[in-house]
């Protein structure tokens, strides 16, 4: 190959990826960098945003316990949601996987169907069922005398966890399902022929092998829950804020963009650290199963 052709050969990959690369830089990296920069700007009720470099916003987040509590609540909700989806989703995927042909595809559709419905619609459904005195379920239970006062759901962390778990369940089921597909179809028979009972097979053979699936599902659910906006906004409203709804409020209600940017940046950094860290841990721990 001549030198010119070689040079052309070396440039070709760059030239070919340039459009996608520019899109990536344009719509992701630049806004992200601007958000980070924004978090160092000053803001005042009357003067608006001032493009100076100060640590005021970061200092406020670090010193005011309100933010610590809010971030702690955000991650608590995300962790509980993750646990709930894992606890329900893993057995669900296993049962689904054992069903025979037609039922399997039907129930897979039932599980994935909600993905086709907007998160807002699904969350509003919960509000209709449990929202205060007028919620359908609450009304019914109160009219038969099972409960005195409505079950607290709206504006509670429990409500948020339940609604989020509902929204996130398909991701967990799919992730565990993918891990189940990798199992040798004869593996349970093999364990059975060696004398293992059904519970032993699940505990000693199936669980360890689908654990990577559960954990990668957990990472997805955790990061989506921690940064979720629609569900916390509807269930928690203004009263029970999480990081995403707080950042939204700072941007659009208080108009304190720099503070909102600081909150958003902190959430992003924390999430990236948690996800990358746990992913590395999982891959090390389950190297044998992943290969």
């Amino acid at each position: 190959m001549s030198a010119a052709a070689e040079e052309r050969g070396a440039r070709a990959p760059w030239a070919l990826t340039a459009p996608a690369l520019m899109l990536f830089v344009g719509v992701l990296l630049i806004p992200l960098a601007m958000t980070v920069m924004l978090s160092f700007h000053d803001w005042g009720q009357y003067k608006g945003i001032e493009p100076v470099f100060i640590l005021k916003n970061w200092h406020e987040i670090a010193s005011d316990p309100y933010y610590a509590e809010m971030f702690w609540r955000t991650f608590r909700i995300a962790i509980l949601t993750t646990l709930l989806t894992a606890l329900l989703g893993a057995p669900e995927a296993y049962i689904l996987n054992r069903m025979s042909g037609r039922w399997k595809s039907f129930f897979l559709l039932v599980i994935l169907g909600p993905l086709l419905i907007s998160v807002v619609a699904r969350t509003l459904g919960w509000a209709l069922l449990f929202g205060g005195n007028n919620g359908l379920v609450n009304k019914l239970l109160m009219s038969v005398g099972a409960i005195r006062s409505p079950i607290p759901f709206m504006f509670t962390e429990t409500g948020m966890v339940v609604a989020l778990a509902h929204v996130m369940m398909p991701f967990m089921v799919l992730s565990v399902w993918a891990a189940l597909q990798r199992l040798d179809p004869q593996i349970e028979n093999a364990a059975m022929s060696l004398g293992a009972g059904p519970m032993t097979i699940i505990r000693r053979i199936i669980m360890p092998q689908i654990m990577p699936g559960v954990l990668s599902g957990a990472i997805i659910v955790f990061s989506l829950s921690a940064s979720a906006f629609a569900t916390p906004a509807i269930i928690g409203g203004r009263r029970l804020k999480v990081a995403a709804t707080l950042a939204y409020d700072e941007f659009l209600n208080t108009l304190n963009w720099p503070l909102g940017a600081a909150v958003a940046t902190l959430l992003l950094v924390a999430l990236v650290l948690i996800v990358v860290g746990s992913n590395a841990l999982i891959e090390r721990r389950y190297a044998e199963v992943f290969r």
Binding site: P185, S193, G197
Partner: peptide
Amino acid sequence: AKRGLGIVFQSYALFPHMTAAENVAFGLEM
């Protein structure tokens, strides 16, 4: 599970999360 037959599968169906020794030990453990 109680027949006590030894079976080798076409795909081997080894337990990938266990070492060779743990695989072999499984039946004895049971």
